[in-house]
Amino acid sequence: MRYKPGYKEAKRKELLKLSGQLAKQHGFSATGVDAFMKEAGVTSGAFYSHFSSKNELFKALVEAELEQSLAMWRANPNDSADAWIDFELERYLGLNHLKRAGKGCALPALASEIARADDEIKQVYQDRLLEGHTLFRKYLGSDEKAWAVMSQLVGAITLARAMADEAQQIAVLEACKSTVKDYLRLAKMAG
């Protein structure tokens, strides 16, 4: 069967998007190829016309998901460092992000699986994470602050998502927001 030009690439992007949502909700390792393809509305046989293995899917998914996070950080409409970080704290540590794991950042959802992946996948993860770090460093002024804030954001979402009580989830998110703001305010005063 002949497809229109660009069909295969568009279908691959759709497969990655839907697979990413499913993986972030249920875990990549715990989800079989059949489930990923069912979510995308294609047969498991169609999988192999896009990916040679589940590992290749994971690599492509990690790259696509982190590129999506980078695009969101780049789209932050603020120019000043304070406004940029305030926007990110509110967006990233919001209930919408917390409650919608499938639509959110891959870092809190997939980092532990990436840590058990092969070196090729870890390298893709590291490369994209370093791009994010560069962006945070631009607004925060140092490597140390960028790593600290990124780690706080991901850690807060990870902890809060694992809690059953929404009031406790909110307490974790709010504590992280205020602690990051205090840390940056004190660092600015000291610098």
Rank of each mutant, 00 (worst) to 15 (best):
Val124Gln: 03
Gly155Asp: 09
Phe51Trp: 03
Lys59Val: 12
Ala109Thr: 04
Arg74Thr: 09
Val62Cys: 01
Lys145Gly: 05
Leu107Gly: 11
Glu174Cys: 02
Leu57Glu: 00
Leu159His: 07
Leu135Thr: 08
Thr158Lys: 10
Leu153Gly: 05
Gly104Asn: 12
Lys122Val: 00
Gly155Glu: 06
Val180Met: 02
Ser151Ala: 15
Gly45Cys: 07
Glu14Lys: 09
Gly20Lys: 00
Leu153Met: 08
Leu98Trp: 02
Gln152Cys: 14
Leu95Lys: 03
His50Val: 08
Ala167Pro: 12
Asp143Arg: 05
Leu95Ser: 07
Leu173Tyr: 04
Tyr125Lys: 09
Glu131Val: 15
Ala148Arg: 03
Tyr183Pro: 03
Lys38Met: 05
Pro77Val: 04
Asp34Trp: 09
Glu88Tyr: 09
Ala162Phe: 02
Phe87Thr: 06
Met1Gly: 15
Leu61Gly: 03
Ala10Cys: 07
Met72Trp: 13
Ala30Phe: 12
Lys59His: 14
Gln169Cys: 00
Ala167Gln: 14
Gly27Glu: 15
Glu144Asp: 14
Leu16Glu: 01
Met163Leu: 14
Lys11Trp: 15
Thr134Leu: 15
Asn76Gly: 11
Ala167Leu: 04
Ala115Tyr: 14
Phe47His: 02
Lys38Ser: 09
Glu90Ala: 09
Gly20Pro: 01
Asp127Ala: 11
Asp119Arg: 10
Glu63Ala: 06
Trp73Leu: 09
Ser178Asn: 08
Gln169Trp: 03
Leu135Arg: 04
Met1Phe: 09
Gln152Arg: 11
Ala10Phe: 02
Glu166Asp: 05
Glu63Trp: 00
Thr31Ile: 05
Gln21Gly: 12
Ala187Glu: 12
Gly6Cys: 01
Trp73Val: 08
Ala167Met: 13
Thr134Asn: 11
Ala35His: 05
Gly141Ile: 11
Asp165Ala: 15
Glu9Cys: 07
Gly155Cys: 06
Lys177Tyr: 01
Thr31Asn: 06
Ala111Arg: 12
Ala146Met: 04
Ala101Cys: 03
Ala148Asn: 04
Lys138Cys: 00
Ala190Gln: 13
Gln169Val: 01
Leu107Lys: 11
Leu89Trp: 06
Gln169Thr: 00
Arg91Gln: 10
Asp182Ser: 09
Tyr92Gln: 13
Val180Phe: 01
Gly155Ser: 05
Leu184Met: 06
Thr43Gly: 13
Tyr139Gly: 05
Leu18Trp: 14
Ala64Cys: 07
Asp79Cys: 10
Asn96Ala: 15
